[in-house]
Design a protein around this nucleic acid. Structure first.
Length: 270
DNA sequence: GCGACAG
DNA sequence: ATCTTGTCGC
């Protein structure tokens, strides 16, 4: 019996075999995931500095994002920025222009976005750049994901870095949905809190929904990526939020968009 | 079968 | 993700 031809791998199509492989890759990488604090630095809180020994202090926090060209949707700009902590000043930025042919499939964002971002991190590491991040904030979820292994986990495990996932929208998982979460945030018992823990129908904790600016209606969704605990992730996100989106990601986003916009602008003039 | 579905 | 200006308000 001839096998039904899989959808040709034209751009923006993905065969069920691809997804099968992707799931296997996620399942494998997930066995390496560390879901608790596992790093050598500490937060530079005024309380702990005097007594605790000469441990390294958290100083460099990275942020990554990708933007796409509106003219040519396969053209993408991967961006890595590093901010000084806790001043939140940008001390490093780098961009990489690439062609992306892997489509966006919900649940498989990493296969589309991770390669460029890993390349940017690798470049920095190989050159022993002094600003190499001690922690990375990622535009996309961590364990808040259908198989508990979103982009932030993927980057964390492959780059062996502590990572935090930030979603601007909720990926519906385990009975959690956007309207229910907003409802919970508005509830009287939670109205004073700036975040709530996201516990699904199964009882599993997937992350937290945070009201990152005073009185904001639209929350952000925090989940652990790799080598960090949820409480620590929440503390760091709170310390890096000048606006709704944590500054490392916001800067990566702004600069990435700027870079590709300038490029298109020049393309027209020539 | 239908709808939902990070960026 | 991207298409898109002004506008209401602190």
């Amino acid at each position: 019996m001839e096998k039904q031809p899989q959808e040709a791998s034209l751009d923006s199509l993905t065969s069920s075999q691809d997804q099968h492989d992707w799931i296997a890759a996620q399942d494998f990488l997930r066995t390496k995931l560390i879901t608790e604090d596992s790093f050598t630095w500490k937060l530079n809180t005024s309380a702990g500095t005097s007594k605790q020994g000469a441990l390294e202090v958290l100083r460099y926090v990275g942020g990554v994002d990708i933007s796409f060209s509106k003219d040519d949707p396969s053209m993408a700009c991967g961006t890595l920025v590093v901010l000084d902590f806790p001043t939140l000043q940008v001390v490093y930025e780098d961009f990489s222009l690439v062609s992306v042919h892997i489509p966006y499939v919900p649940g498989f964002l990493a296969f589309r976005e991770a390669p460029v971002l890993l390349e940017l991190l690798e470049k920095m590491k190989k050159s022993n750049n002094p600003f190499y991040p001690q922690l990375l904030l990622v535009d996309g979820n961590g364990i808040l994901h259908p198989r508990g292994f979103g982009l932030a986990c993927h980057l964390g495990v492959v780059a062996d870095l502590p990572t935090i996932g930030i979603g601007k929208n909720l990926h519906h998982v385990d009975g959690l949905n956007q309207s229910r979460v907003r409802q919970l945030l508005e509830a009287e018992e939670n109205h004073a809190k700036d975040f709530i823990t996201l516990v699904g129908c199964s009882g599993h904790t997937w992350g937290a929904a945070m009201r990152s600016t005073q009185g904001s209606v639209k929350p952000i969704f925090i989940s652990i990526g790799h080598r960090i605990s949820l409480p620590t992730a929440i503390t760091i996100v709170q310390m890096t939020c000048k606006y709704r989106v944590p500054e490392p990601i916001r800067q990566a986003d702004i600069r990435s968009r700027d870079y590709i916009r300038t490029l298109q602008m020049n393309a027209r003039t020539m």
